[in-house]
Amino acid sequence: MAAVVVDNAPIIDLHDVVKQYGSGESAIFALDGVSLAIYPGEYVAIMGASGSGKSTLMNVIGALDIPSSGEYYLDGIDMASLDENQLAIVRGRKIGFIFQSFNLIPRTSALANVELPLAYQGIKIKERRIRALKALDLVGLSDRLTHEPTELSGGQQQRVAVARALVTKPALLLADEPTGALDSKSTADLLDLFDLVNAAGRTVVLITHEADVADRAKRTIRMRDGKIIEDTAKVLA
């Protein structure tokens, strides 16, 4: 259980987290006592078959779901102590989400989609526009600002999603099967983008079941039946 040694506090710190559905005999443990620490600047891939609990883990890390028991500190904040509104604020400020199905707001331009998290943070329109343009520039979509999701290819939509995730300057980029719906060319582009983001110092956690995608990460965590069964750090070349 070796981790890349980074000499400051973990950004994600899970202690014996359990997520349980149902109770008694019929109880199903989606997470069965997971303890995990991820440090700033890491690039972590979480792998596992479907039903292994990796999506639940991601939801818990992303503050979308609340664990049944155990402790979770995100950037030092005890998530159990937050109410729904505070969780929304934490999600908005600390985490950038990327989903398999892109999850852009339909019938809304790329630019407006990227501006949206800033709007919810109460950032002024002018600054919002500047930051959104910058984020879209970073993902190479400066020429698609007014396009709506249906007018963009899958790869482009996912890059808009990445821009939206990055525009808030989150501590953590959380990607759930981000390449699941992409062709190989788009996948390669996206993974290059992740490398770039990680190289800039941002923590990236991605969930995948594709080995070649996981290969790009510096640390790979394997899950089965709600438990972490393997946690390997790639030897830096």
Binding site: L64, E84, A88, R91, G92, N103, I105, P106, Y120
Partner: peptide, 16 residues
């Protein structure tokens, strides 16, 4: 519903 979920995931509060 999905859109609402997305909005919440990217930081929309209940009030919004």
């Amino acid at each position: 519903t999905r859109e609402i979920g997305i909005r919440k995931a990217i930081g929309a509060r209940r009030r919004a």
